[in-house]
Amino acid sequence: MDLSTTLSADALVIDGIPLNSRLIMGTGGAPSMEGLSEALAASGTELTTVAMRRYTPETGASLFQLLHSQGIRILPNTAGCFTAREAVLTAELGREALETNWVKLEVIADEHTLLPDSLELVEAAETLVSRGFTVFAYTNDDPVLALRLEQLGAAVVMPLGAPIGTGLGILNPHNIELIVSRAGVPIVLDAGIGTASDAAFAMELGCDAVLLATAVTRAQDPVAMAAAFRHAVLAGRLASRAGRIPKREHALASSPHDGRADL
């Protein structure tokens, strides 16, 4: 198969919907709507997360309209929810407002760590699956919980690389690799990404996609960083499928030994 065929036949399919970019962008943290729009375009993303908050006459539904006009599919999240009850209600508001069954389910334990509360997460995931949602479950990098979320019907499991907004990269690559190796649904590395190499690494570990926001929106040059991630995700994906060389204890010359000049 030639390279262009490899690339074009490599869509990530979720719920029957093909996504040609394996970079999912969050919109959080952008200082302006114009800057966000440019960064989204530079990232090449086809799916982007939003939060659900109170309507104000000043901003109206401008983000919804912007994403709609850019042709980017919307993934409402349940950010800011601490209980399953709040998360389910927020998901239902997102479904109603944005006309999508897709939801990034995020149930946070506390403001300090922003780490997922696993018990509330499981309860909310079960409820949302039973109500017909396509659940993207944001979870700790716990291989046991990841599998449980898949078994109870999550369409996508999204383990964190590191806590939200830290940019620490992938703190436990072994766990991510283990999650990927046992998964029957797409695995998206979500949260903790700091720079392009982190995203490439996630893809090399076998993740199906990467979700990030802060790393782009709070970079000094968000548009350039968005482009960097676009290439990094593609590079990591290609590398993961191309079959890397095994690691060796000792050097292995790539130039031939035979035919050297007698110097």
Binding site: V50, M52, R53, A61, L63, F64, P76, N77, A97
Partner: peptide
């Protein structure tokens, strides 16, 4: 009554 819409968020 709560009236909500999409805002920027991860």
């Amino acid at each position: 009554i709560e009236l909500v819409t999409a805002v920027q968020g991860g």
